[in-house]
Amino acid sequence: MPYEWTTSKSLELRPHRSLPRKGFAVVILLFFTLVSIPLTAMVGTKTLWGLLPFAMAALAALWWGLQRSYRDGDIHEELLLRHDEVLLTRTNPDGSGQIWRCNPYWVRVSNHETGGPVPNYITLNGNGREVEIGAFLSEDERKALFEELKHKLAQIG
């Protein structure tokens, strides 16, 4: 699951990875092999030099697209629930970070079923701010997370 409670008071969230790094290598190798098969019939002809740039451009585009997907998915959120503070830390794909703190007594978790960037958009309200949590999760995961957060925050508050 893309999110897990590491302790009863600590939650870690990461986007789901459907293609691991080994799978990335397999996809690139398979694509290269499948593109090379018809090109081998063209060896020794001028047609090969006409097709080769397009085949290599397609391979480069696939490589770039998968690498970009990995970079964009380098998001990490961590929620710590303490008796005196709720702390949400987000690390963005570019390495920058954002921190939100609030007294647990004032924290309110909201589920915006519509009107958010995604269905069942979860936000934490408190300390004069509203912050999102787990927007990269699937809709079912956000629904489950909302219920778990309500329960955990009720235990603290």
Score class of each variant (00 low, 15 high):
14 R>D: 04
92 N>D: 08
28 I>P: 00
45 T>R: 03
64 W>L: 04
49 W>H: 09
33 T>I: 13
107 V>N: 01
78 E>A: 10
140 D>F: 01
122 I>M: 02
72 D>M: 06
20 P>K: 11
94 D>G: 07
146 F>E: 06
144 A>G: 12
12 E>W: 12
51 L>P: 00
105 Y>E: 09
19 L>I: 15
64 W>D: 00
123 T>K: 05
47 T>G: 06
7 T>I: 08
101 R>H: 10
72 D>T: 01
90 R>D: 04
13 L>S: 00
90 R>Y: 07
105 Y>K: 09
24 F>D: 10
142 R>Y: 05
18 S>Q: 09
124 L>N: 01
92 N>V: 06
106 W>G: 13
69 S>E: 09
7 T>D: 15
95 G>V: 14
72 D>Y: 08
19 L>K: 07
115 G>H: 03
5 W>Q: 11
52 L>K: 04
6 T>V: 15
53 P>C: 07
117 P>W: 01
101 R>A: 05
115 G>R: 01
20 P>Y: 08
101 R>Y: 10
105 Y>D: 14
57 A>C: 10
117 P>H: 01
76 H>E: 12
108 R>C: 00
101 R>T: 15
56 M>Q: 10
75 I>K: 06
64 W>C: 03
5 W>D: 14
38 P>F: 14
112 H>E: 05
59 L>Q: 11
53 P>D: 02
146 F>Q: 06
59 L>W: 04
107 V>E: 03
110 S>F: 08
13 L>A: 00
27 V>R: 03
106 W>S: 14
80 L>A: 07
138 S>K: 15
88 L>F: 13
